[in-house]
Design a protein around this nucleic acid. Structure first.
Lengths: 140, 140
DNA sequence: CCGAATCCTATCCGATACTG
DNA sequence: CAGTATCGGATAGGATTCGG
């Protein structure tokens, strides 16, 4: 039985909202969504601009990501029926609001990636996550 | 720390930091990490408590997630050499700092999931992400 | 220029069984 | 109680090719 939950402070854990959180994480957790959103933060861009601005992306993944974002109402797609086809993508207000949350995450990453890296290195040295040697018998 | 952003500035995209962002997203983007972190936010818990508090998780995924988090220095693992084995997990300061960013994401999810859902529904009705009917010829 | 469609591979993740 | 080991299905995502 859970004994230690809700010790003190404002109810931090989400009881039934976890489905929503996972829904959002499935979107921003994939490899390219965050890059696309952040690239679009400067203003509308066309398909080829996006592809050029996001180095390792394939057409398949760019198209798929754009469709998902459009479906969720985070970006808009505007196709101009011109002789050389032109399509522009832009963030919606909803997309921009997500950008703020994403940017907070990015700030954390930039601020703490060194810490994480050094922890990971020392863990590898002591074999924390690999071997079964870690008993870490506490002074007790 | 790095304030590193500017909503309506000229150059929003991060040139070389994207690797760090992806590193963090690979961690919090997986299915269980956020749940584990948020569950630990109330205080230290043992293995079986975590498993009970996170309904659909398997031992495999719980163990793997815990190891990753420990390796990155986001949680601590303390094993007591007792007759019934007891292991406690706890967030580090680094883990708590990430929790803040994650909570911001969760707040966004709770605040806007309705909007996203309705957009997705109307997109499905008009066939935005499925058919090739969407030409959306703008007035131009 | 902007995709769609197909193929193929690596990885994720759940279920199950076993150990100390 | 707290894991480890192995199998197998499902999926992400890259390369390539074709269409409008």
């Amino acid at each position: 039985m859970v004994t230690a939950r809700r010790i003190s402070g404002p109810c931090q854990s989400w009881p039934e909202d976890s489905a929503f959180i996972r829904e959002v994480l499935d979107r921003i957790g994939d490899k390219w969504t965050v890059l696309v959103i952040s690239t679009l933060s400067t203003g509308s861009l066309r398909y080829s601009d996006l592809q050029a601005s996001i180095p390792g992306i394939s057409q398949r993944m760019l198209t798929q990501t754009l469709k998902h974002l459009e479906r969720d109402g985070l970006i808009t797609r505007t196709a101009y029926a011109e002789v050389p086809p032109r399509v522009e993508y832009d963030l919606t207000d909803l997309g921009r609001s997500l950008l703020n949350a994403v940017t907070a995450m990015a700030a954390w990453a930039v601020a703490h990636h060194g810490e994480v890296a050094s922890n990971r290195a020392s863990s590898e040295a002591t074999g924390v996550g690999r071997a079964k040697t870690s008993v870490t018998t506490p002074a007790r």
